[in-house]
Design a protein around this nucleic acid. Sequence first.
DNA 1: CAAATAACCGGCTGATCTGCCTGTTTTATG
DNA 2: CATAAAACAGGCAGATCAGCCGGTTATTTG
Lengths: 221, 221
Amino acid sequence: MPGSTMQKRMLAAMRPATLGDEPVRWQQRKSAQTRLKMLEAAVDCLVTGGYAGLTTAQVAERAAVSRGAMHHHFATRIELVAAVVDHIFYQRIRLFLDDYLAAMAQRGDEELIDLATQAHWRSVQTREYAAYVELAVAARTDPELNAAFEPAARRYDEVWTAEMIESFPQWRDQWHAMKLGSDFAIAVHSGLLLHRPVFGQDRIDMVLKLSMQAISALYKS
Amino acid sequence: MPGSTMQKRMLAAMRPATLGDEPVRWQQRKSAQTRLKMLEAAVDCLVTGGYAGLTTAQVAERAAVSRGAMHHHFATRIELVAAVVDHIFYQRIRLFLDDYLAAMAQRGDEELIDLATQAHWRSVQTREYAAYVELAVAARTDPELNAAFEPAARRYDEVWTAEMIESFPQWRDQWHAMKLGSDFAIAVHSGLLLHRPVFGQDRIDMVLKLSMQAISALYKS
DNA sequence: CAAATAACCGGCTGATCTGCCTGTTTTATG
DNA sequence: CATAAAACAGGCAGATCAGCCGGTTATTTG
């Protein structure tokens, strides 16, 4: 499994279109910098106040940017939201890959599937994933958000699937099982996240253990 | 498994405190009626507009009730929200039980665990569960809502657990496995709900099948 | 250096929501 | 029937937000 190749390929595929690689002009760099500052502030708003807390005023304040500057970069709220959606999906892939590749470098002797599953569970517990959940839930009842969210979600899913097929050629004949295991882990992990306050850590751990057994069993048949 | 006994016990345990059983006075009946009308309208708001769409104005309009009447029953928005929380948990139990008991009466020959798991998946696809998800997600970032939501969620979880233990004495020595299977199903089903737009029905069905296998395996060991 | 362009600033308006308040109608009670 | 109480009606003020606009500063370009 060519780690850095995978990382570059997936990140490139999910890179927001607005990120032109390494601008040289001072203005463009400053512009991209404040733009990123606002996107990060928007993620903060999502995490602390939900999608309803993602207001232009809040973002501007958190980013320490005037509302005029904000309006210059994002004329309307929905433009900002669309940028946040792309940003979140990009970060979601980046955080998972960083974690997974680090774990693989450190403990490459263990089962790759187990390592990937554990890395995914850790990635689900990040603030970026919390922001993703807020967007995913809000997209169900907000048509404008959904118009930006669903295409990004599909793109993310396609990149994810394609990467699995290309990165693990040794299991090419079992890629249906891999995809199923991946879908399964995604469902379990996000569901656990939702019920975590009620379940508590002990029950979470038991469900995680059961899930990993079910996933492992997929490859031994 | 005494079906109707279980139903009565669980419903009684989750019954909102405000519902005094069958009032006789006209005023009280009318009052309870409009109150219920507003709660149902609030669920509509949640389903179509998310927690952010649950505004006093929207609810009053959908319920065809003046804002004055609304203020008479719920002085503040958070009072309404707290009532909606109790209402939703009560409906969530009621809908599951209705479905499960009907399925058991019709196909009592199949495995009870399978029937319960399938009934739970159906209950997850109701509008009431959609409203529950909205509340659960919003409660993570809204302290006031969380103050009403978390106790209700814990009560629901306790009722659920106690019912499993009392209703299936033949598996008393395996109730840890039952609880694990239940937690597992809850996590998988809610996670699938979240990713349904991307996964599509085919992948959903495959994950469901895998989950049921994992749950069944819990009892055969 | 001057003109053009990009980034940034903050006030204004209309819409919406919440909480509060004063009346009005309907039902209950003595 | 008269009085009390409950249910209902809708207007008003304060706060917040999205969108818009004219003006200002900093950078680029000829």
